[in-house]
Each structure stands twice: as C-alpha cells, then as structure tokens.
Design a protein around this nucleic acid. Sequence first.
DNA 1: CCAAAAGTGTTCGAGTTACACCCATGG
DNA 2: CCATGGGTGTAACTCGAACACTTTTGG
Lengths: 218, 218
Amino acid sequence: MRPGGLAVLLAKRGARPFKGELELPGSPVRTNEPLEKTLRRELRDSAGIRGMSLEQLGAFGEPGRDPRGHAVSIAYFTWVVAEQHAFVAGEKREFGWHSIATLKLNENAGDASPLAFDHANQIRQAHHALRHHLRHHIDQTPFELVPARFTLTELQRVYEAIFERTVDKRNFRSRILTRGLVEPVAAKRVGNHRAAQLYQWKSLKRKSSQQREEVATK
Amino acid sequence: MRPGGLAVLLAKRGARPFKGELELPGSPVRTNEPLEKTLRRELRDSAGIRGMSLEQLGAFGEPGRDPRGHAVSIAYFTWVVAEQHAFVAGEKREFGWHSIATLKLNENAGDASPLAFDHANQIRQAHHALRHHLRHHIDQTPFELVPARFTLTELQRVYEAIFERTVDKRNFRSRILTRGLVEPVAAKRVGNHRAAQLYQWKSLKRKSSQQREEVATK
DNA sequence: CCAAAAGTGTTCGAGTTACACCCATGG
DNA sequence: CCATGGGTGTAACTCGAACACTTTTGG
C-alpha cells in the first residue's frame, strides 16, 4: 500500500453466505466478554494484529443484513499505520488491505461492491466518523495517524487521504503548529531532497482510548 | 416540568435487581425486529408515547453492567417537547420526567444517583451527544426542540437548558436568522408582555429520521 | 545545475463574542 | 406608570481559505 493511501483491512470469506466475498473482521461476542475485547481477540487470533485503539461506530441490527438470521453487530473503527500493524498472512483467514477507492463504496446504484453483508455501509459510515473525529476532535484523537516521529508533510498526506482532497501546505502547517499539537524533535528525515524536520505528538494531550470528557466550550 | 427544563423520561423498576430505582425505558430485541422498532414498541406499549425521531447513542456491553448476566444494550436518545408526548400514567410502568440537575449525574465520586444499571452513564453520554448534534448539525437535527410554532426566546431557552449556560440574546437571534433555519409566521404570541413574533422551521431543510449524508465541506 | 521537496506570511471574508438601550404590552 | 419580556447594531477578534516564492539537498 502506498503511504497515505486509504485502505480497509478485509478478509475473504471462506464460508457461505457470501463465500469468496470480502468482509470486515469480526466474531461473535462471548459471554462476559467486553465488546471491544471481542474484536481485539479476533484481530489477534486470526490476523496477529494487536494494540490499536478502537472507537465504537454503532450497532447494526436490521433484519435481513445476515441471510442466516437476525444478527446484531457492534462495529468499531480505527486508523493505523498499516506498516506498523502488518497482519500475519494466512494464519486463519486471508486478510488484505483494500483501497477504499477500488472498493467503489459510493456506487449506491448497483451492488457493484464485492462486500459481504452490510459491510460496505459500515465502511462508509466509519469513513464519515473518521473525518468527523479529525475535524472536530483533532486534539484528542486516539488514532495512530502517523508513526511516532513524522514530518509535517507526512501528516498532511494522511489528512489528504482521509478527506480525499488536497490541502494547502501553509495553512495545514500553521494550523497544526499553532494548536500546539506537535513538537519538533532533534532530528531530520534525510534522503529525499531537502531534509525535513521531524515532529512528535505532544505527550498526554491526546487521550488514550478509554474515557473522554468533552469540553463544554467547544 | 417547567418549560425549557432538561429532564429525562425514566421508569421506576418494579423487579429486582435495582427494584425501586429509576431506569431508562427499554426492552429485549425480538428476532427480526429492527433495533429502533424495539424501542418504539416499548415506548408505545408501556407509556403510550409514539412518533419521535431516535438517534443511536451506541452499544453498552460491559460484563457486570447487568447483575443478572452479560447483556448488551443498544441505547437511543432524542429530545422532545414533553408536553407534546405526555406519557400514559401507570399503563404498565411508573414513568416520570426527572430533571437532569436533581439526578446528580456528575457525582462521579459516590454512587449517589438513584439510577439502575449503567443508565447514569448512558444519560451522561446522551447529553453529550445531544449538545454535539446541536453544535455541529443544527441545520439537520431531527429533534423536536420546540413546538411547531415558537418564539425565538423559547428556542433560546431550550438551547440554554441543553448547554446549561445562558446565551446572548442578540447573538443567538442573529445566528438563527442569518442561517435561514426559521421563518416568521403571520402570528404573534400574546399574553406575557410585549407580543412576540412566532416562527416555524423552514420546511424540508431538516432531515427526517431515516438516513443522513454529511457534507464534506463542513 | 536542476529537479524535487521543505519551508515560510499576508490578506480577505465569515463567523463568534461582548456589549446597552429602546419598545410594546399587561396589570 | 412601571415592570417585564421583546427586539435591535456594532466593533474586536478568531479561524479558515487563497495564494507564490525561496531554500536545501541528492543525483
């Protein structure tokens, strides 16, 4: 996957229904298992991925979304640097990153998308929620947008991928810097052309994925 | 309930656990029943309330939130003009409006709140979500904030109740009016002192409670 | 030396905030 | 006539958007 690309981690279904189609990873919730933990277990056990923050997207419970019978799913979403969460190939299921562009989620006309169940819909909603988070709660997103140390251009590429448009370099940099979200580290990224300043998130300004408390005054 | 007050519709539990404590209305989801419909059925059957828009708050599935065993609840919230959704007293359960101030939800220290299960937490989150909605999606809230025809002061009182602070009259009015959300009707509210202009929401600017489509450019 | 990415300021419009006085009406 | 709520404008500030050139480096 090219850096900054917007992609979704999907698995190929091995069983009916929707055999051979792509689906979001998931698993039935076990008794006395927190919802989030269910997903972490599934990601760990069947793809070897662990340690990301999760945000709840919502519950999906329309009858008919699962042909086998009425099922309610609780969906979570996150954003990670793919290179830092490489899945273990073929451990249990066939996982892969799928570019959101090629999934053609917005073909609301035909069912052109190769996605099982209502997962195309869930991905669309997650994309919205992600943008919403970044637009309104940048200062407390738990998402792993970039590696620990990053250049501002790298961060900008991520924004451009998520919002699916180019953003102005000067505006972006001044916005990020004046908000005091990042701080420069004593190192530069060399190798491309002119060396670029590396930054890191200012510590503890960002929430860890447990509780939140919205500030009343915007 | 006094106009503009922020209150929650609660029922007194008749059974253990939490017998005698207050709880949010709810009911188990039936097979092949959409989640929203479950709640509408419950509100209709046990309180005689119907016809409000619902927004999903999220799923709550921590083990231990129900002492009887692991249970996952999907919570919804809305905002209505209480006078227009009078519940039928004593039909099945003992319902009542409870001022959010007297519920003491923010006593995060002791468990002073008389609420069953994790419902105090759910109400707190719903309050946040409500504010968030009004702050960011005023032009498309499906909520019934005020009766069909209202004065700007009445609308302002609702905002003040929800945000729990006073707002400036001139700023509020110009904001509402310049956004073109409301239009004056050919009538005034008389009786208090100087007669007040009545307004109504501009038709079809506001979504009905089915689908949404967030505008990308804020 | 040149291609490519890094880095840097200013101006404009829109929206939000703070703030004070006159008007109409009912009692 | 007076108490009460209805109604109005302006100035300062903040934030986001548009926009172009110089600097550094590797090849």
